[in-house]
Amino acid sequence: MNLSRSDRRERLDRIAAEFALGTSSPRVRRRLSAIATRDRVVADALTQWERRLAVLADAVPPVTPPPRVWARISARLGLEHRPAVREVPLRWWSRVGVWRALTAIGFVAALVLGVAQLGQQPAPAAAPIVVVLAGSDAKPALIASASRTDRFLTVKAVGGTAPAAGRVFELWALPQGGAPRSLGVIPAGAIVHMPLATPAEESLTNIPALAVSVEPPGGSPTGAPTGPVLYSGSIERMY
C-alpha cells in the first residue's frame, strides 16, 4: 500500500466517521479502539467525529430509567458506605484498598518482568528498579525505572497517559507506615527524567511503593497529596 499522507488522512477520517456513526464492522471497531489507545492521531480523529455527531443525540426524547439502575450502580460501588465527600486526603495511603491493589498489580508486574528476564542474567550494577503504576482498572498508566546507581528516575507514560488541562501529575514515595514523600512533579512528555537526591537504591530504601496524584500547576501546595491518587504501584527490584 502506498498512500500519500493526505490520502491516509482522508481514509482515517472516513473510518473514524463510520466508527462514530456505528456502521463499522465488529472487526474494524475492535482494531480501531485498540489503535486509538496508543495512537494520538487516530484517537483525535475518533474524538472529533464523536463530537460532531454527539449533537444529534440531543434529539432523542429522554426515557427515565427504573430506580433499580441507580440502586445497582451505588450498590456495586459501595457508595452508601462511603463518606459523602472524600476530598480530604485522609491518610489515603493507609487504606486497605490501595495496598490490596498494589499487591495484585505488583504481582502481575513481577510476573511479566520476571518472564522477560528469563534466560538473561543482567550485571548487578545495571539491575533495574521498576515500578508499574496503574489505576483502579489495573491497566499500566506510567512506568518508572532506574538502575541502582542512577540519580534519576525514568518515567514513561503508557498509552498517552496525561493529566487534564491545567493540572499536573506529582509522584510520591510511599514509605512503609509513613506519610507520602514527594519526588516532584512529573514533567510533560512521553519519556521524562526526574532527578533523585541520591542513587536510586538509596533514595528508595524502605519505600515499598510509588503513587501519582493530580495536583495544581507547580505541585501540591501542602506537601501532601491534595488531589485524587490516580495511579500506584509497588517497587520491584530486579536483583
Binding site: A57, D58, V60, P61, P62, V63, T64, P65
Partner: peptide
C-alpha cells in the same frame, strides 16, 4: 441518566 438510557434503549 434519562438521556443516555434513551440513547442505549
Amino acid at each position: 441518566g434519562a438521556h443516555l438510557y434513551a440513547v442505549v434503549l
